[in-house]
Every structure is written in structure tokens, then in C-alpha cells.
Design a protein around this nucleic acid. Structure first.
Length: 243
DNA sequence: GGCCAGGCGCGGA
DNA sequence: TCCGCGCATGGC
């Protein structure tokens, strides 16, 4: 058993080899802490819901039905991935709320991680409609401010269920209609947002572009492979020459 | 102080 | 459809 729901606000994770919050948090898929507390004991990790989240919500958020050890052993068949997988063995792909994912990754474009993490920390994702262009500018969104205002209006018209039925190419095309969303940000939304969770989609940014020969193409877990590579490159920057 | 950042929108060919 | 360019602004 990977994990278990104990009560309405408590989850125990027994398999510590496939859950590491530090690694998940620093693998470039989420830029703020979720509404829960994570503590570690010798034989388990305890997740306590806070705010208005409950166990069921967090179970889905952390995708605890998926066995990442199976995925890792499959991807480890690619020699250039074994080191990145070992380095980030506790990484999982989260199922994040759609709006938050879209807005966060629009802000991430042509920006540096430290800077846009600070911007995202200031946002109230439950009331995005209240922000004007100058509000976004004041929070450091720069020239993306008008894109964000327009995107938030467009999001009101989006039908998650209809979009989630689309195959990858059509879905990407639809997502790119949102202001500030191009091919790369659309890929991130497809991989990281809850209604999609397209684990075969690998966002190609400036980092992954340089490591592209090491990324399995058209694999059902290309997106997860990308995640191990990204984390590896971020934290062992000299590693690019080794793999 | 100059270059860069998990790219994208836009105008011109 | 495909290029080239400009872009706010902090981090380093």
C-alpha cells in the first residue's frame, strides 16, 4: 500500500520512496505550498489538511492512486534517465487546479523562477477577477499584466469537461487561444493541471531543449521523464555534460 | 552594469 | 506559415 486515508483531514503515506515534498516542490511544477502540513516520521509521512481542503482533495492532488515505482522502473530502461530518476526519486506529477496552473505558467514565461515565485505567492487564486492590469504590474508581472487580465476573462468561458475529452493536439490548440499561452505553457497546463494530467506531454523549455536527446519521445511517460530531467538539471547544473 | 529568465504576441514577408 | 523583434523587471 502506497498510502491510506486515516480520517477527513489525515493521510498516511507508507511508501516513502515515491513521495518527497521537497523534490515535488522544487521540480518546477508548483510555486506555492498547498493547503496542508507535511511531517515525516521514521516509517511514514503524514499529510494534514488545513484551510478548506480535505483528505479526498489532497489524495487526488498528490495523485496517490498512481504507483510511481512502476513508472520509474519503466523509464529507467533509458540509460540517460537512471541518474535523474535516482536524484529525484520522490517526484510526482501533481493534479493542480486548472485556473491556478494556467495563471502561474503565464507568469513564468520569460521570467526567472525566484522572481515569479514571489509574484505568485501574492496572488489570491480564488478571486482573480478583482485584479486590474495595474494590480498585476504592481505585483511584478511586467508586460504580462494585460495578458493576465484577458486570460482571466477567457477562463470564465472555458468548459473543463469538454476540453478534457480532446486529444493532445486539439487540446493544445484550444489552450493556445488563451492570451499569454503558447506551445510551452500549453504543454505545462496539459501535464500539470488536474483535468488533463497528460503524462505523455513534455514541455520543452530552454533547459529541456538542451537535453532533448536524452528525453524519450512519444513515450506514455515523456512528461514524467521531462520532470526528472528538469529537476536534475536545476539542481546539478553541471550534470548536463555528464548525461 | 549587462545579461538572462521554464516564451509569447505581433507585424511583415 | 514562418521568421525576427520587443518586452517589464528582479536576480545574479
Amino acid at each position: 500500500m502506497i498510502a491510506e486515508i486515516i480520517d477527513n483531514c489525515t493521510i498516511y503515506i507508507y511508501d516513502k520512496t515515491q513521495f518527497n515534498w521537497y523534490q515535488i516542490r522544487n521540480s518546477g511544477q508548483i510555486f506555492r505550498d498547498p493547503l496542508c502540513e507535511i511531517t515525516e516520521e521514521p516509517n511514514k509521512i503524514i499529510i494534514k489538511a488545513t484551510g478548506n481542503r480535505d483528505s479526498k482533495w489532497l489524495w487526488n492532488f498528490f495523485d496517490l492512486d498512481t504507483d510511481y515505482n512502476k513508472i520509474k522502473s519503466e523509464l529507467a530502461k533509458f540509460p540517460s534517465l537512471t541518474e535523474p530518476i535516482n536524484h529525484g526519486a520522490g517526484i510526482r506529477i501533481l493534479r493542480q487546479p486548472l485556473t491556478e496552473t494556467i495563471i502561474s505558467f503565464i507568469i513564468s514565461a520569460n521570467n526567472n523562477i525566484k522572481r515569479f515565485t514571489k509574484t505568485i505567492a501574492q496572488l489570491d487564486f480564488d478571486n482573480l477577477g478583482k485584479y486590474s492590469e495595474s494590480d498585476f504590474s504592481a505585483m511584478g508581472c511586467g508586460y504580462r499584466a494585460p495578458y493576465l487580465v484577458k486570460a482571466i476573462k477567457q477562463l470564465a468561458e472555458i468548459d473543463e469537461k469538454e476540453l478534457s475529452k480532446l486529444p493532445n493536439t486539439d487540446l493544445q490548440k484550444q489552450l493556445q487561444k488563451i492570451s499569454g499561452v503558447g506551445p510551452k505553457v500549453a504543454s505545462c497546463i496539459m501535464l500539470f493541471a488536474d483535468p488533463f494530467h497528460r503524462l505523455d506531454v513534455a514541455p520543452v523549455d530552454t533547459w529541456i531543449a538542451r537535453a532533448l536527446p536524452h528525453l524519450p519521445q512519444n513515450h506514455k511517460y515523456s512528461g514524467i521523464a521531462q520532470q526528472y530531467l528538469f529537476y536534475y538539471l536545476q539542481h546539478l547544473k553541471k550534470g548536463l555534460g555528464k548525461i
